[in-house]
Simulated scan of single mutants.
Amino acid sequence: MVWLLAIATGLIVANLYYAQTLIGPISATTGLDPGAAGLIVTLTQVGYCLGLLFIVPLGDLLENRRLIVTALLLTALALLAASFTSSARLFLFASLCIGIGSVAAQIVVPIAAHLSQPATRGKTVGKVMSGLMMGIMLARPLASLVTDAFGWHAIFVLSAITMAALALLLRARLPQRQPQSGMHYFALLGSLWHLLKTTPVLRRRAAYQACMFGAFSMFWTCVSLELTGPYFHLSQTGVALFALVGVAGAIASPIAGHRADQGKSRSTTTIALMLGTLAFALPLLIHSSRLVDLGVLVLTSIILDMGVSANLVTGQRALFALPAEIRSRLNGLYIALFFMGGAIGSSLGGWMYAAHGWTGVLWAGLCFPVIALGLYATE
């Protein structure tokens, strides 16, 4: 069941990232200008945030399996719409809807916590989240490879078919889980603000991860533009291979979860935030030949992905130690808050790259984990 949940979350969350390395070809087809190209990623993340705030809390109210299947079928429809349009407005609207539907992944994660024993909850959530991080990281190279072979529309058609098939599989295999909250929907939404006010660990963990995910989104939104630019001059296949190496960072998720189960959350958080800082410092400090610079960027992608993965799982382990009846809302708030950081990072990244080039992106990206370290120092 853990493997099924890990694969499912990876496949679902990948929908948020297919467009990240395809900004160039999508913009050319839909007529988006370079300054607005970051909206392709930003609106998907905005949709995800909206879904996290208004749909994921339903996991504490409605039968979870039915909620997941419905969200997946709606995602499949949005993916089909994106694949068949050449209109910028329609594509951006479809991107928003893809983000909203993909919150099904965050209804799956609390199920994993619910099914696991308290002593191994961090390790189990870490395994599921490693599947999620693998989905994020594999989405980019897969999108680039499919685009090279069949055009950018094909990846959206392929994902729509996958989401429909996954909906049928999860309907057959997932256990039913009917929460006993006794609340109506608007009371449930109203409780989100109360939870945010009364749960300091939620506010802190969300702030740390918002900074880390902002840096992550900025890097991966802009690095494809740099890699295909005049200095590195890589093809989409080259970008795919580059992104594929970054998958190595997913190994940090189960390790961080296991360390959190052992009571080592503080040291794990320190390591994660330091890795985020190191990732952006390396390419700023090391300048040499084209090959060396490319190697530094590869190392940067691995280190950054490790830091983001480790910090994410450590935060979720802390939240899932709280009562089961509020886990879906806590998880929804946590992911929504740090995805807002991701949306800021991706939109700021597009502007920084257009105005100040790759060096400007690196300096802006470095600020995010440094701010997180500053916040963490006050804990």
Rank of each mutant, 00 (worst) to 15 (best):
V125Y: 01
K197C: 13
S130D: 01
V103P: 01
T124D: 05
A119T: 14
A119C: 02
H114W: 09
L192A: 13
W193K: 06
L92W: 05
L196A: 15
G131Y: 04
Q178N: 12
G190K: 11
A94M: 05
T198Q: 12
V146G: 04
R171W: 15
H194I: 13
M129H: 05
T199Y: 04
T198E: 09
Q209V: 15
I161K: 10
G99F: 10
V157F: 14
L168E: 02
R121E: 11
A88Q: 03
M129K: 01
S191T: 12
V125P: 09
G131P: 06
H153Q: 12
C211K: 04
G131C: 07
S102E: 03
Y208H: 04
V125F: 04
M129T: 12
K123N: 11
P200I: 13
R171C: 08
V146R: 06
S191G: 14
A187H: 11
G190C: 12
F93E: 00
A210N: 07
L192I: 12
S130V: 01
M137S: 14
F213V: 15
R204F: 15
A210M: 12
V108R: 01
Y208M: 03
L96I: 08
A104L: 01
T85G: 05
L96P: 03
H114G: 13
A207M: 10
L96R: 03
T124V: 15
Q106E: 09
A113T: 06
F213E: 02
G182P: 10
L90I: 11
A165D: 02
